[in-house]
């Protein structure tokens, strides 16, 4: 951003502008470092447009008959997304309770919960896929396990944050009736966080639809397996049909998720 600076009036003091130039200069240096040292084979870059046109050419027209193979695989993909979301919602709930500052039984338990959440969130679903394929062998089970693991931390983090933000007065009122901890929870806490749990679950389902189309690349079930095999056989017209189907399903999922969330909240 450049400011047009008249002679007398200056937007920033000398120190401020020095600071700004300093930051901009450092950012520029970082960028130059990144571009200079990155391991790019430049002939690839100059050749890129031609290659792109070539690939697009091989991909058209998309093979419409291949839809017969795509549909069952796509259903499997949606199943993976749905099941993993359900499992993640169920498992994340106790995790969220253990992690929330105001409901955790003990700081050490909270630490353990936090470690699980952080690990779950910072390991990509493809990596979880690689791990669970080792456990269960290739297939849907590994896919469901992978997406469950990834969604778990996401759900637990958001739900435990919402537990931490509840109105404490309602909890106090339930304690005053002589209810024990569990009953205070279902009356004083649960009704307050329920909208968040429902909203986040649907949102996560939407994300999982996207991700479940990918985990097949490491053998964890769904449409990704079909995509990999089509690519390995250089069936580019099948590939383009798969991509179109994924695009349609993702958009449909986003639409469903947005509509349901609007209806419920």
């Amino acid at each position: 951003m450049t400011e047009i600076q008249p002679a007398i009036w200056k937007r920033f003091s000398k120190k401020q502008s020095l600071e700004r130039y300093g930051i901009e200069f450092v950012l520029l240096l970082i960028f130059i470092w990144a571009t200079q040292s990155v391991d790019i084979y430049w002939p690839f870059v100059t050749d890129a447009p031609a290659q792109a046109v070539d690939l697009l050419h091989r991909m058209t027209p998309p093979s419409v008959v291949f839809i017969k193979a795509i549909i069952p695989s796509m259903i499997e993909t949606i199943n993976i997304a749905t099941l993993s979301t359900i499992f993640a919602v169920i498992l994340s709930f106790p995790l969220a309770i253990l992690n929330a500052r105001n409901t955790t039984p003990h700081p050490i338990v909270q630490m353990v919960a936090r470690v699980i959440i952080v690990t779950s969130r910072s390991v990509n679903e493809l990596v979880w896929g690689l791990i669970f394929v080792v456990f269960f062998g290739p297939g849907v089970v590994a896919g469901v396990a992978a997406l469950t693991m990834r969604s778990l931390g996401f759900m637990a983090k958001l739900v435990s944050e919402s537990i931490e933000e509840i109105d404490h007065g309602q909890v106090e009122a339930m304690r005053a009736t002589g209810a024990n901890g569990a009953k205070v929870f279902i009356f004083g806490v649960l009704p307050q966080v329920m909208p968040i749990i429902i909203g986040t679950s649907i949102f996560r389902w939407d994300i999982n639809i996207r991700q479940s189309s990918v985990i097949g690349l490491v053998g964890a079930g769904g449409i990704g397996i079909l995509l990999t095999s089509s690519m390995n056989m250089f069936k580019w017209q099948n590939v383009s049909m798969i991509l179109i189907s994924i695009f349609v399903v993702v958009l449909a999922g986003e639409y469903v998720s947005a509509t349901v969330r609007k209806k419920l909240t």
């Binding site: 024990n180 004083g188 307050q192």
Partner: peptide, 19 residues
């Protein structure tokens, strides 16, 4: 808990379960 149940409390901000 049994003792608390013998004491009814009414609050400043009502503290009803809103939902």
């Amino acid at each position: 808990h049994n003792a608390r149940r013998q004491m009814g409390m009414i609050f400043q901000e009502y503290n009803l379960i809103e939902r």
